[in-house]
Amino acid sequence: MDHETIERLIRLGLYGTAGALLVFLWVPLVVMMVLSFAVNSSTLFPFEGLTLAHYGATFADSGLIGAMFTSMAIATISATIATVLGVLASMALARYEFPYRELYRTLGILPMVIPGVIFGIAMLIYFRTLLGIVPGFWTVVLTHSVYGLPFVLLIVTSRMYTFDESLEEAARDLGADPIETFVDVTFPVLAPAIGAGFLFAWIRSFEDFIRAFFVRGTANVLTTSMFSMIKYGTAPKMNAISTFIVFVVAVLLAIAMNAGDVASYVADTDGE
């Protein structure tokens, strides 16, 4: 085989694998979306026609929608806490040398690395057995605020490392005081990273099942409701709510990608 042929084969192989991968990533989701409109909602064949009834039933299910609002409330509160703590901690890490700095950093990243089952159980026995707190809405908020912290920390610190501190010096040389410098120079540069960090922490909280499962007490969140739907084989509503979520995420992602460099933020924070 000559050089050209090999080159072409390699390119074909690369594109082939890449294409196959996209198919692999998308086929199950597309099938699920199709099923959400199918009368027979659990498998493609026998095909019995199309309907919107599953969506009607899903949005009429006040328990499910209520659980979704609970999840949104938990995600908002916990991501806010994570963002405030994470931005402050990032400033400390990026600007100051202090004893046990690496330990501090590791501790801040740990919640992202510990498997959810273990973190959930640790929180459950801590709240219930040691502190005697009855698990519920607020224990989920506390747990998720810790879980979301690493995502803020990672995104904001990496932004701070690339931040050109001479900008701040220039502002000060031009007579701005530290507060003005922060408000007019530092914050605008960091804002997209802070926003991305918040969004990540929010999504992680919203999609978390296993941590919430342990510490939710009697509160219902979206993921635990969805879990029982799968367990009880309630396919129609599960397909519809899942498709709805994919759709919302797609719209938000498209907006975000047009607004900023999402890919590089994501690359900063891989890990569960």
Partner: peptide, 8 residues
Amino acid sequence: MYLVRAYS
């Protein structure tokens, strides 16, 4: 959501 992907 991770749960949605597992479900699919």
